[in-house]
């Protein structure tokens, strides 16, 4: 578990234009996943959560159903994924072919003092997703496997757990005004003002 989260996310979000259907649409779970995605380079197709814990995967589902020709990637942490574990069942029941989830798993609640999370105490989220009916799941532990994972996440409906180091990284704080994030995301999709 030595993978550096910033290096992992920078690789996953590299060359986002090289995605079937156009720019990859990214939803990030609150806390470090949001900071990691912002640090990888801010872009209007990134929708950063700063709250709504447990909601990232379901935002991904609503978006995937609304934009069937685009690819959606949810990047979140183990704590956020655990709070929304039922969503893994809900998404599997719907089987959107254009939605993937990458969980950055450091087995800790990093934001609140590094308390052990359930993934450090026995829960295997990839096994949970498989049990919920996800047909493709994987657990990645080596940096050398991240480039191949980047490709799979943009071509399959894949649930991936990436074991990362719990080491602290410098804070990077992207935009937190939800209305602004929403407007620029919809603008990037060419949607009209409602």
């Amino acid at each position: 578990m030595t993978l550096d989260r910033r290096a992992v996310v920078a690789e996953l979000l590299r060359d986002t234009a090289e995605t079937p259907g156009g720019e990859l649409l990214v939803v990030t779970g609150l806390g470090s996943a949001t900071y990691d995605a912002g640090a990888a380079g801010d872009r209007p197709e990134n929708f950063y959560l700063w709250g709504a814990m447990g909601g990232a995967a379901m935002i991904g589902l609503g978006l995937a159903l609304a934009q069937p020709d685009r690819r959606i990637l949810v990047v979140t942490g183990d704590g956020e994924a655990l709070m929304g574990m039922g969503a893994l069942s809900t998404i599997a029941a719907k089987r959107p072919p254009n939605l993937s989830i990458a969980v950055l798993d450091n087995a800790q609640f990093g934001e609140t003092g590094h308390q052990s999370s359930h993934t450090g105490l026995g829960t295997d989220l990839a096994a949970v997703a498989a049990g919920c009916g996800w047909l493709a799941t994987t657990t990645v532990t080596a940096m050398a496997d991240i480039p191949a994972l980047r490709i799979r996440l943009r071509h399959e409906a894949l649930f991936a757990v990436i074991r990362i180091s719990p080491a602290e990284v410098p804070r990077f704080l992207p935009i937190r005004d939800g209305a602004r994030l929403t407007t620029r995301f919809r603008d990037a999709l060419g949607l009209p003002i409602d």
């Binding site: 649409l25 939803v27 929708f47 709504a52 447990g54 909601g55 990232a56 995967a57 379901m58 935002i59 991904g60 589902l61 609503g62 978006l63 995937a64 159903l65 609304a66 934009q67 685009r70 929304g84 039922g86 969503a87 069942s89 809900t90 029941a93 719907k94 929403t182 995301f185 919809r186 999709l189 949607l191």
Partner: peptide, 23 residues
């Protein structure tokens, strides 16, 4: 699209994602 949820708050996040995507 009819989406059966495991708990109601999932529907709020679903709605937000749909709106981001124009639905």
């Amino acid at each position: 699209a009819a989406v059966v949820l495991t708990t109601e708050e999932e529907g709020i996040a679903l709605s937000a994602g749909a709106y981001l995507g124009g639905q």
